[in-house]
């Protein structure tokens, strides 16, 4: 009998639904999943398929998105606006997924785990997202630089 194999992203997403407040512990599990900052099948493929100018344009657009959305997340968390928080987290997850920023996407998904819930977002999530965003941008920039 085969053991059920869950993809790291899916596993973390599911975990996030029922251990919502335990972000730090989840984050440590996340690292145990050996998830890289960038998914090579997405980010690497984009870098390979697209002209460098297009790839750079995407990175710059992503940077603008990150700046706007992390600001929205922070503001929503501060005011307790769950809907706006969820909405910003959703957009952030989408933007991260588009460039293959796996860890950032997973973190953002924690913020959109339960839209209907009135519970506040997990403490420290905004900071964590900001950290992952920086990591993703740095990894993308390195990818744009090429192997040399």
């Amino acid at each position: 009998m085969h053991a059920l194999r869950l993809q790291p992203l899916g596993l973390c997403h599911r975990l996030g639904v029922w251990v919502e407040p335990k972000v730090d512990r989840l984050a440590s599990r996340w690292h145990h999943c050996h998830v890289t900052v960038l998914d090579p099948s997405i980010a690497g493929q984009l870098a390979e398929d697209l002209p460098r100018a297009d790839f750079l344009l995407i990175i710059n657009t992503f940077r603008d998105d990150l700046a706007r959305l992390t600001q929205e997340l922070t503001a929503a968390a501060a005011t307790g606006d769950h809907h706006s928080f969820h909405r910003a987290a959703h957009s952030l997850a989408g933007a991260a997924a588009a460039v293959g920023a796996l860890r950032l996407e997973a973190s953002a998904r924690l913020g959109m785990a339960d839209e209907a819930s009135t519970a506040p977002p997990p403490p420290g999530l905004s900071a964590r997202i900001a950290t992952e965003a920086q990591a993703a941008l740095a990894a993308l920039a390195a990818l744009a630089q090429g192997p040399g």
Binding site: L57, I58, A95
Partner: peptide, 9 residues
């Protein structure tokens, strides 16, 4: 598409 990164990709 409402997410600019997605649209740009």
């Amino acid at each position: 598409e409402d997410t600019p990164t997605q649209a740009e990709v």
